[in-house]
Design a protein around this nucleic acid. Structure first.
Lengths: 258, 258
DNA sequence: TCAAAAGTGTTAAGAATACACCCATGC
DNA sequence: GCATGGGTGTATTCTTAACACTTTTGA
């Protein structure tokens, strides 16, 4: 949706293709270089940062819509993506919207009862990706983006701060029940790498000895014979996820701490 | 909604009051006499059992809608009610609905593009109530109801089995993170009572000694000096919830097992 | 005195925590 | 040889799990 024509078509005819009253605003967590960030877009007409978003096609399964929207924004497929809450309580989710000014800036005539003005609830999904592999695609409405560290989230548009907070809380609770990291680390990784990943996501320090013991005891990772040269330091061993144990844990859940 | 006039008004004008495409179908867990049941309604025209349901008013916060729908069905207020998932993937949630036959049975002329025919996603909430305190209110569409033991759930209409399964799984996971029981037991209760409650919800046996130790160690309940006479058996002591600890645990969460 | 249900304590195993030193590497 | 980061083990504490007999009560 980059040209004015496409936008006009979306505004006028979108209600034929998409369900009104519902959107999906994914919280995309990106991990790279020991940092956990989320993808924010600058919505031009609103002059503020917010989550990406999209609508559900009329005949499209909900979870497929979430994957599609993610794919359109990041180019990524096969992503860890999880529904965590549906938002419909905040004042912004109560009122009929007033994006009129917003659209008028672009000279699109919307009429009085355009579908985009109606009250819209949001189904919240979060994704966990390696942000160095992402090609963010902006469009007519969003020409800037940033990967913003989770420790420095600014005040966001709408109720998006609430969504980010809840997504992060869910992710942090989840990590005690399900393994993560498969898609965020290279196939072979070092203990310090996965250690930092967990520390970064949980936002707190984890004892490296206990952490390694735990992951090995759970059978989630196994040590390989190979090492990696990392310059003027001792070479760390490489590890791999134990795929079977990992997927079992994903499905059945585990209860423990780190 | 008991008379034909009300129904006709709902069918023809409901879209002015309610959001289309979205419903709330609460899974109402009722506990009483050491049994965990859910409320099922018999939808007359569909000849099958399903969950109660309702729509969201256009200007009504989502969680308030859930409470209202529950209140309308059960008369209960101030209930433990929790959102657990939004359903939009099953075949039933994909198609435009075809309740035409259903309504035609009642002689309501709906027209071709009635709002009730459209695809409808469902925001799932579950509630936990004492079913002996419930006055189920049926209406024009639902004149029978039953409290059905969770171990004997029949095949339900639409995707409601999926909703029940997921609600139960969520409740069982939740019980390891948050206390429950405040609204399900009398103010003063015995250890066997709360013990059975937890066993019933989890669907498995819990060692009575360890269980009692745990609840007391967590500071959730305290022993009173009083006992209750229960006939030709030893009189059990009464306990009370420690309100402060209980509410802290509700808000902040706990991680443990039973 | 009997039947039914309640109450209670200890031990062993496992898990979590805390903690500090040596090792390997490249410059 | 030195700076940097990686690797590893043990002791303590706490938590969980397993387990069986005695007490109370009213009939």
């Amino acid at each position: 949706m980059n040209s004015l024509e496409e936008v006009e078509d979306f505004v006028r005819n979108g209600h034929r293709h998409y369900l009104p009253h519902l959107s999906i605003d994914p919280v995309i967590f990106g991990y790279h270089d020991q940092q956990l960030k989320i993808l924010l877009l600058n919505w031009k007409g609103l002059n503020g940062w917010g989550l990406p978003g999209g609508f559900i096609q009329r005949r499209e399964p909900l979870s497929q819509a979430a994957h599609r929207i993610l794919q359109e924004r990041t180019g990524l497929e096969n992503v860890f993506l999880q529904q965590f809450h549906t938002f419909g309580d905040s004042p912004y989710r109560l009122q009929e919207r007033n994006p009129r000014e917003f659209f008028e800036k672009y000279g699109v005539d919307m009429g009085e009862d355009n579908w985009l003005f109606e009250r819209t609830l949001s189904v919240g999904y979060f994704a966990l990706v390696d942000y160095s592999k992402v090609n963010v695609r902006t469009d007519f409405f969003t020409q800037n983006y940033q990967w913003c560290d989770v420790k420095e989230i600014p005040s966001l548009l709408f109720d998006h701060n609430e969504a980010v907070d809840k997504a992060l809380a869910t992710l942090r609770l989840q990590i005690y029940h399900q393994p993560i990291g498969y898609k965020l680390l290279p196939e072979k990784f070092t203990l310090p790498e996965i250690h930092t990943l967990y520390e970064t996501i949980l936002g707190k320090e984890l004892d490296p000895r206990n952490f390694a013991k735990k992951l090995v005891a759970l059978g989630l990772i196994k040590k390989l014979a190979e090492q990696r040269a990392i310059g003027p330091h001792r070479s760390p061993y490489l590890y791999q996820f134990e795929k079977e144990t990992y997927e079992d844990a994903l499905k059945q859940g585990i209860v423990h701490t780190y």
